[in-house]
């Protein structure tokens, strides 16, 4: 997202939904309607911090039919790179932020005859916008929502009231565990399953579904993994000759943007493929779900939003 593509928004409301989760309501600063979107879309939120800008992707959880505001829910990640802590600790009602136009990497399949949504913790957010669509289209669907403790999540009452018997809840602190194998085993042909949450949950659902014979085209996963930290390294831009230092908690993409470059990018999570960059020399520690294993082994390309150098220096074709 370059500056041209960003939409200025004002923080209209902040709701503390649990000790770790806040919901932010964002209104367009210029008063005009925000871009329409489809359920499962995310935006990249840009926050102007004192020392650096933070840019994090968040799923839109408000109704796709609502264009006066967007809503996002943010879980505070104390070990993260600082974006969620900044939103929790520094952002006040009335502050200005920027959002990218919405993009969707986790859309419902319109041909699905039945939709099973499996959420773990904060992974509920993309489903909140999709549920508006499923209800409006009178689709056949079920939500399975696993979380640690009821006071750790705020959406329970609303989901129970709006979706009745279609919503199933699993509170692990009470000894209720979501069993993906059982849920998946009893679905009719033509069902699509969607999973968002911690890596372990996603792996279990995908593995179970494959083992039960589900086609890959009917299994959809969205992993909102933050870029991992790692050893610092130097990135050399071949075309300009610039040498930039990437700190343990920075990404190559962040560092490029902080130095005035505007590389193509969208998801900032190693999924969409937009920031694919050719590597001239250097070893890459890949963290993306986009490049093929073959390309990864060659160290010829990298996704600069999540992947890091395994060598001390990496020369990129930029």
């Amino acid at each position: 997202m370059s500056a041209v593509d960003s939409i200025p928004v004002r923080v209209a409301a902040i709701e503390t939904v649990s000790p770790f989760i806040k919901t932010f309501t964002l209104e367009p600063t210029d008063g005009g309607p925000l871009p329409a979107f489809s359920g499962g879309s995310h935006v990249v939120v840009t926050m102007q911090g004192r020392d650096k800008n933070h840019r994090n992707p968040y799923s839109l959880m408000s109704s796709p039919y609502e264009r006066r505001f967007y809503q996002i829910s943010v879980r505070r990640e104390d070990d993260g790179r600082g974006g969620s802590k900044f939103l929790h600790g520094n952002v006040r009602v009335g502050d200005q932020l920027f959002v990218s136009p919405p993009a969707n990497l986790f859309a419902l399949n319109e041909l699905g005859r039945r939709h099973i949504l499996i959420a773990g913790g904060i992974g509920i957010t993309p489903f909140l916008s999709q549920l508006y669509e499923l209800r409006a289209q009178d689709s056949d669907y079920a939500l399975h929502y696993a979380y640690r403790r009821a006071d750790d999540t705020a959406f329970l009452d609303r989901l129970a009231a709006e979706h009745g018997e279609r919503a199933h809840f699993y509170e692990s602190s009470q000894g209720h565990y979501l069993d993906p194998g059982r849920i998946l085993a009893e679905q009719p042909l033509g069902t699509h399953v969607y999973v968002c949450g911690p890596e372990g949950l996603i792996d279990t659902v995908v593995t179970r579904a494959r083992r039960l014979g589900w086609p890959a085209s009917h299994i959809h996963a969205e992993e909102f993994a933050a870029p991992p930290s790692g050893r610092p390294f130097t990135v050399v831009l071949d075309k300009s000759g610039d040498e930039l230092e990437v700190g343990p908690d920075d990404t190559v993409l962040d560092v490029l943007e902080d130095n005035g470059y505007a590389p193509d990018c969208s998801c900032r999570g190693g999924v969409c493929g937009e920031c694919e960059t050719a590597v001239i020399t250097g070893e890459i520690e890949h963290h993306d779900d986009y490049l093929s294993e073959e390309v990864k082994r060659e160290h010829s390309r990298m996704m600069i939003c999540v992947s890091r150098a395994a060598s001390e220096r990496v020369v990129l074709d930029l």
Binding site: D5, P35, A36, F37, P101, P102, A103, S266, C272, G273, E274
Partner: peptide, 11 residues
């Protein structure tokens, strides 16, 4: 195709 799959609203 790769390019079009990531085509953005408004662009």
């Amino acid at each position: 195709l790769k390019y079009l799959l990531t085509l953005k609203v408004g662009s």
